[in-house]
């Protein structure tokens, strides 16, 4: 039973401080969105003459949309790749024992905590050594490999919640391990898979540190924006950033809802321990 107790006394100073932290977290984003509607460009205060002209411009900017398409392709493929491998890795960590298992676990999770530049450069050297030309394929290789870490942690958490007796019951009732996997294990993991997929998709769409070193001629969206930043900033970039923000927020909130349904409120193991 949840009790409202003495401990929850009001503490106005702390509340104000918390409010300021939230302001710090959100103010830049609010400013970004606000200036995407500013006729006179990014800068100056206060913003005057609200307009959607920058969004119009954005929608006719074919280079941006090409990069969006590239990012979507890479993200979709990265979801498939890292979910498949992450699922197998999670199953292996949950159910198999093999020499070097703990090293394997650490290795899989390493890209999550390691700076992107290390993973990106390592894969760059690998690609050059193998004679792979830099292209969206190398970017996918980078995203897919780095994000196995996310898929593995999320799906491992999902697997831990499955009552193993369910699988025992299935085997007991005469189902083969293969049938048990398809009919019991996978359906139980459905929500975890969707949640992990959403997260991987969002992360891949936004990824820049690893992509930076693996990109070929075709830009992903973040790299396209990055390239334009060198030429100076325009509200058009604010406009596309606003759209990215909006899409990310939606995906994150959907992910969070599914996630809390599968593993409970505080389940954010992914980042509770590096």
């Amino acid at each position: 039973m949840k009790r409202s107790s003495q401990l929850n006394r009001r503490s106005p100073l702390l509340a104000i401080y918390a409010l300021l932290v939230f302001a710090f977290l959100y103010l830049p984003i609010v400013v970004l969105i606000l200036y995407s509607f500013n006729r006179d460009g990014v800068g100056g205060f206060p913003p005057k003459h609200l307009t959607i002209a920058w969004y119009r411009l954005l929608f006719t900017d074919s280079a941006i949309w090409d990069s969006v398409l590239n990012s979507l392709l890479v993200a979709a493929a990265a979801v498939v790749l890292s979910l498949t491998l992450g699922l197998l890795a999670a199953l292996a960590l949950d159910r198999a024992t093999f020499p070097g298992k703990s090293i394997f676990r650490r290795l899989v999770l390493l890209p999550l905590i390691l700076p992107g530049i290390i993973t990106g450069l390592s894969l760059l050297m690998f690609a050059v050594l193998r004679g792979l030309p830099l292209s969206l394929v190398t970017v996918l290789l980078g995203h897919g490999t780095a994000l196995i870490s996310v898929a593995t942690t999320e799906l491992f958490a999902g697997l831990q919640k499955i009552d193993r007796a369910q699988e025992e019951a299935s085997l007991d009732l005469g189902a083969t391990p293969w049938q048990t996997f398809w009919r019991v294990t996978l359906p139980n993991l459905k929500l975890s898979l969707i949640a992990a997929g959403l997260l991987i998709f969002t992360l891949s769409m936004d990824e820049i540190a690893v992509t930076f070193f693996l990109i070929g001629r075709d830009n992903t969206l973040p790299l396209e924006i990055w390239a334009r930043l060198r030429r100076g900033i325009t509200p058009e970039i604010n406009a596309i950033s606003t759209l990215i923000f909006a899409v990310s927020v939606i995906l994150i909130l959907v992910w969070y809802q599914i996630r809390t349904r599968t593993t409970g409120k505080e389940a954010h193991e992914l980042l509770e321990r590096p």
């Binding site: 977290l25 830049p28 936004d206 820049i208 924006i225 604010n238 923000f245 990310s248 980042l271």
Partner: peptide
């Protein structure tokens, strides 16, 4: 949820916001 939203929202978008 208000804290995890900025957590997962694009590094680039947030960095760019500071630049402006």
């Amino acid at each position: 949820q208000l804290v995890i939203v900025p957590l997962w929202v694009s590094y680039l978008v947030r960095g760019y916001a500071w630049k402006t």
